[in-house]
Design a protein around this nucleic acid. Sequence first.
RNA 1: GGCCCGUUCGUCUAUCGGUUAGGACGCCAGGUUUUCAACCUGGAAAGACGAGUUCGAUUCUCGUACGGGCUGCCA
Length: 469
Amino acid sequence: MTPMSKPVVTRFAPSPTGFLHIGGARTALFNWLYARGRGGKFLLRIEDTDRERSTPEATAAILQGMEWLGLDHDGDVISQFDGAARHAEVANQLLAEGKAYKCFATQEEIAEFREQAKADGKSTLYRSPWRDVDSADHPDAPYVVRIKAPQSGITTIKDQVQGDVTIRNDQLDDMILLRSDGTPVYMLAVVVDDHDMGVTHVIRGDDHLNNAARQMTIYEAMGWDVPVWAHIPLIHGPNGKKLSKRHGALGAQEYQSMGYPAAGMRNYLARLGWSHGDDEFFTDAQALDWFDFDGIGKSPARFDTKKLENLSGQHIAVSEDAALQHEIQAYLASAGQPALNDVQSANLEKAMYCLKERAKKFPDLLEKAEFALASRPIQPDQKAAKALSSVFIRILSELTPQLQNVSWTRDDLERLLNSLAEAHDTKFGKLAGPLRAALAGRAVTPSVFDMMLILGREETMARLADTAG
RNA sequence: GGCCCGUUCGUCUAUCGGUUAGGACGCCAGGUUUUCAACCUGGAAAGACGAGUUCGAUUCUCGUACGGGCUGCCA
């Protein structure tokens, strides 16, 4: 790429037949990173030419997933189906120029041929007998339009990830451009749309690698510039198999419902199949700056929840409190849980500093935030109740009046608790459990001093009094 | 079946002919500790296999095995 080359335009082109799964999300992310990192455009096109399987619900789910991940696109969402007339126009132009032809073979004939070829152990590549038939000899019957693919020579896909991939042209079939009902097929539509949209770099799953060779015949027939190809390896499930719904592939949004922050998800997804030296944890700005084709690996990667959690926790720790608040509310909504009310939000905000560094996901954070979210009287859960034996309750009730006059600082509170422990010939560590239980009703919380500081003198004393009965 | 692609610790990866094959997550042991998380120290853990090229291969070539993809009037 020279500085003079035209601006980068990438696109993400999912078909709306289901949710945005993790592999698609990563493809979208790579396209987004490549374009945005270079001041280019990132477009979104919905490949809805298959009317049978495309649904508006799926489109909505994809859009929502993109939004959650923060992958904003330029311009309107483009519907591939809307361009059907233009696609047909191109096919007809090719037909007029003799670069495509009408094929009258029926689907039954072709199916029969394939079955036979398979039985004979021969290539199932279909060669239409109509390729060179004069139009005067055409029957009055339904037909499909096929492109005249080259039958000799080679086609080389100069791929930025896979390197040069060469395919013998005699392996290429005369693919269908227009169905017998006149509607365009995907293979034609992608090429026309990518050209018309000015897409300069096609970054997509390597399941399209072979298709690229076939699509190149259309580019050549039309005399169009071929885009830069980058076919990235697919993501596999934990079992090493292709990601599928059956193998637990989840929609991007389910990760939101599980409480992962979008920034952590982006970091993890970017790191899956792409690397920049030994960098593991990075910001969007860094990813944007670093992302390039030479860092993309050639082999498929497996999804690893543990690593996602680790990265997720690191991102939560460095996030701004206000941003975390917003994301947590969105998480609750996506998980179908009640939103935090104003009081809870305010308390959460006060407690955020000591919560965000010890949570991997939002549910962990909220669990530890329970002391700030709950209101009196605190109901201890089973584990907390166990810590509240009568002997400790007695010590706590002894503590309560002493809290009245102590200065409400961490140092003084620590001093007070330590001397109280000493007076009972024990260590502060022994007191922490019951105190925690009384203040939070939970066994897992931030430091008891942080809780006391956040709760304040009055509330702390009230909760201890409640516990002492 | 045909064609295409891939193969480094359990997982994600670094290495662009010469390294005790590095890092991260996870795991194990120990430490710290106020629960959880975090943190500190240490540890186990990898070049699929077989040839070839080379003074020297994880790295280049070929073959085998295994995995994946495509082979639709799906995208």
